[in-house]
Amino acid sequence: MMSVETEIRFSLNGRPVSLKVPATMKTLAMLRDRLGMTGTKYACGEGECGACTIEIDGKTVNSCLMYAVDCDGREVVTIEGLRTPEGLHPVQQAFVDHGAVQCGFCMPGMIMQSRNLLANNPELTREQAQRGLEGNLCRCTGYTKVLDAVDAVAATNTCGGRANP
């Protein structure tokens, strides 16, 4: 038997969406399979790695654990929402400039979490960044260049408060 479907409405990267989702569907599956937003990545599926990090009402969560029905009435921002009309978001640009990206699979989550940390604390220290990124695993970079990129944004204070301009 299939789970009951529920109609939900929420804001996705600043645009209203509405759709029907099964009660047990997770937000990650909804984003990728129902809404075609494949920027957010599925890796562990258990809350351990942070590849699926999104922002909901200004706070980051693991979308692989969050029930899609719980998005109803809320503001969701994914990696696709960071791009500005001028191009990459300053945090994305810093990751590129510092060579912080290798295979890239962890990066949408890494950048969502970094951007949120920087927006909440423009004077983020390296140690605070390290702690704030504890829930984001990367199998390639060894984290040093990731932290360099975050440091650079903190130094120039170029991270706006809201994910969605």
């Binding site: 038997m1 299939m2 789970s3 009951v4 529920t6 099964p22 009660a23 047990t24 569907m25 997770k26 990650l28 599956a29 990728r32 399979d33 599925y42 599926g45 692989c64 029905v69 719980d70 109803d72």
Partner: peptide, 13 residues
């Protein structure tokens, strides 16, 4: 990702 097929008949919030 496979969604487990569950017999939830009502969702309430």
């Amino acid at each position: 990702m496979s969604e487990t097929i569950e017999a939830i008949t009502t969702y309430l919030a």
